[in-house]
């Protein structure tokens, strides 16, 4: 089974967890850090599946381009996240400033 590499949660893996499944590597690591910055109030779980990491945030998962640049320490276009975005839970909104994963119906 997978390990949890980061968690900020009461321990409940709710039905409303959304977020990306990323190919492992430096962009995924920056995204893990960015998700913690950009979703300060959300419960978070990060699962390490070696080839990929699954990031889960409750209700909404936001990743900002500026936060990615900060953690990567280099220029980063939001579209570049697609190079490692293998799958995701929830619906997606993709803009040059951020990517957002969300559900329309929250339980």
């Amino acid at each position: 089974m997978h390990d949890q590499v980061a968690a900020r949660t009461s321990g409940n893996d709710s039905k409303n967890m959304v977020g990306p499944v990323l190919k492992s590597g430096d962009i995924a690591e920056a995204a893990i850090a960015a998700v913690q910055d950009d979703n300060p109030a959300a419960a978070l779980i990060v699962e390490n599946h070696e080839a990929y990491v699954r990031i889960k945030a409750e209700g909404q998962c936001l990743i900002r381009q500026s936060t990615m640049e900060h953690h990567l320490g280099r220029p980063f276009e939001m579209a570049e996240l697609e190079t490692v975005l293998a799958s995701f839970a929830g619906q997606i909104e993709a803009t040059p400033e951020y990517m957002r994963f969300y559900f329309d119906k929250v339980f």
């Binding site: 499944v21 190919k23 492992s24 599946h49 070696e50 080839a51 990929y52 697609e82 190079t83 490692v84 975005l85 293998a86 799958s87 995701f88």
Partner: peptide, 29 residues
């Protein structure tokens, strides 16, 4: 493409793991 990529990475078959997870990033879009 992700199930096998996970096993491939554990196998040390990074070439195949990387290939199929790369394919899956197109699918996600």
């Amino acid at each position: 493409f992700l199930g096998l990529a996970a096993d491939a990475a554990k196998m040390g078959d990074y070439s195949f793991s990387n290939l199929i997870s790369s394919v899956q990033t197109d699918e996600a879009r």
